[in-house]
Amino acid sequence: MAQLTYRESVSLAIAQSMRKDQKVFFMGEDVGAAGGVFKATVGLLDEFGPERIKDCPISEQAILGAAMGAAMSGLRPIAEIMFSDFLAVCWDIIANQIAKTRYMSDGQINIPLVIRTANGGGSKFGAQHSQSLENWSMAIPGLKVVAPSSPRDVLGLMASSVQDPDPVIFYEHKSLYAMKEELDKTDIEIPLGQANIMHKGNDVLLIGLGLMAQRAKKAAEILKEKFNVDATVLDLRTLVPLDLQSIKREAKKCGQVITVEENPRLCGWGAEISSLIIEHCFKDLKGPIKRITTPHIPLPSADILEDNTIPSVDVIVDETLTKLKIKKEK
């Protein structure tokens, strides 16, 4: 048994992949000597040296460009973009180059790389260091989109992402870095495209991702304990590939569906999931699908403002009760 934090599982996951495959290397800003601004890559430079752990200049296009080119010649790079907000700086390399080159080259070129990035709010960093941007990459054909919600999932999904033949954007949640988990095994693989049932119930389906999956799970525990509501919590874990079979099965079983998203309302991933559920499970639904999202705003910084923006456990509980027409007792 080992107790690992989410941040420790990031460096362990990278190390495990690098020990197994000489083709894997890691690059990013302040990732080596400094061990990462979130201390999620501590120890890697000592173990693997500067040829495989590459400290880079503040040049996001150069970082992802080099990662792409290296992947094109058969290496398996893991590149860090310090905050997911900075993906905007190198979005051409991601959306136009990394995502499309396999298709445009008629399959001549493979791009097996992982872009890992710190995503999401909760740190009061304001509008440019707090966004949840999974839906940006979900909209681009050719990318895979992963967002682990626990130390175990970091380990298992990173192992699969590194071995995957396609480019993967790996969204780590800043507010989960300190999360601890007891693990009996660390050398694990979780296939991409396999959602995780975090809580079982028949009354309502809560679909989440990353931090929102963890909050939905806590909400489900409260709903059970205080209101005798049985919720299923489905952590999607990956948006592309998407585990549509699990979504359909659980939506049909529960008949009531709520998506819990950290992103702004418009074009969030919950909209696509809702559309799929309506397309495939309309007759089984007992009511409209509810989407819990942040309002359609840039994220504010002050405690009270941010805390009232990102969906909290209380909000998820309240919205679920409202949807099920259950009165909250005082």
């Binding site: 460009g65 080099a66 990662a67 792409m68 080119g69 290496l75 051409d92 180059q97 008629d106 070129i109």
Partner: peptide, 27 residues
């Protein structure tokens, strides 16, 4: 694009391929 002959692509967004070319050199 003609990988067999070392042509690793033609890039239509100005400048994008310069960082990418670094990548094959890095490899």
């Amino acid at each position: 694009t003609d990988v067999e002959n070392g042509v690793m692509g033609s890039y239509a967004i100005i400048g994008a391929h310069i960082p990418i070319a670094n990548g094959t050199a890095l490899a």
